[in-house]
Design a protein around this nucleic acid. Structure first.
Lengths: 164, 164
DNA sequence: CGTTTTGTTCAGTATAAATTGAACAATTCG
DNA sequence: CGAATTGTTCAATTTATACTGAACAAAACG
């Protein structure tokens, strides 16, 4: 595959992540950047390089790199001899996403508990409905924490095998 | 608690779910309806009742009940003596959400594989980055399926205890 | 049948979000 | 120091999405 074609293909890959992010309710450009950082060379990219590779404004790069940083998916690094700071994938970033999922379950559970409080002793059936929902989120909370633990073990295992 | 106050509190509960849905990138009204169906009496509500309880247009109710149906969270039922069809929580709806999560992981994995295909043999480091991502999504896919199985067992257990 | 209720669709509007260009502040370099 | 580069912020624009009212189609009723 020739260089221009390769670049084309990898750009397409970044664009696909942009679209997937959009469907997940996240900024498209954040998805583009994140996707790109998996296939770019070198792995550290300056804001300017992102602007050129993805054809987005530097304002958008600034906004979305900071979003990705706050999500724990990307980190900022200094490179010797380089004036501009660079961005790259943050190791363990996906694990952070998992933690956010757990936080979401906690949030949903808390809201469900609020509903039960509001009902107090009123209404048998409604309470039952809410308690079933509560049961689900409690379960999710516990299991996702378990899942996170498993992932950490899995990671450690791979590291030991020299694959991480 | 007096009736008007109770209604007020439960409306607030539905509104809270609306806001949570919005933060999750889903239509606010869908959240309102879903939240409401947990605390309304009776558990089956006509479109007209939803319009009145939530103060949204019937067009929006129509759109969002169909969305919730497609998400597997709500089902439509016929009630004897009632002309209009009614909506209620679909049993096992949350389990369906879990299945969608699995589908999301599958999607992300597939996209990552596309990236690896595009790289073919080029680039050592990039391939490594992508393979780590692939590893994560593969793991998630497997573990979420496991989680779903656990949930089903948990449900069965509760049923046996007469709590489901 | 004709009338009423119900549910969907659609064009238009309102609302929210992402993206941009430009202005600004901060830093780096010679 | 002065010039150039870099990063953020902000107002304005574009874009996407949700929501509504009205028109329509379908079904239920007398």
């Amino acid at each position: 595959m020739s260089q221009p074609d390769l670049f084309e293909a990898l750009s397409g890959y970044a664009e696909s992540w942009g679209l997937l992010f959009a469907r997940w309710g996240l900024p498209r450009t954040a998805g583009r950047i994140w996707g790109w950082l998996y296939v770019c060379e070198p792995p550290e990219q300056s804001a300017q390089e992102l602007v050129e590779a993805l054809h987005v404004s530097k304002a958008s790069v600034s906004t979305n790199t900071r979003l990705l940083e706050s999500m724990g998916l990307v980190e900022r690094v200094g490179l010797r001899g380089a004036r501009a700071s660079h961005y790259r994938l943050k190791p363990g970033g996906l694990e952070g996403m998992l933690r956010q999922r757990i936080a979401g379950a906690v949030e949903a559970r808390a809201l469900t508990e609020q509903g039960l409080d509001a009902l107090e002793s009123e209404g048998e059936g409604r309470t039952k409905r809410l308690e079933e929902k509560l049961d689900f989120y409690r379960f999710m909370e516990h299991e996702l924490e378990e899942l996170l633990r498993h992932w950490q073990e899995h990671r450690a295992q791979r590291k030991r095998e020299g694959r991480g």
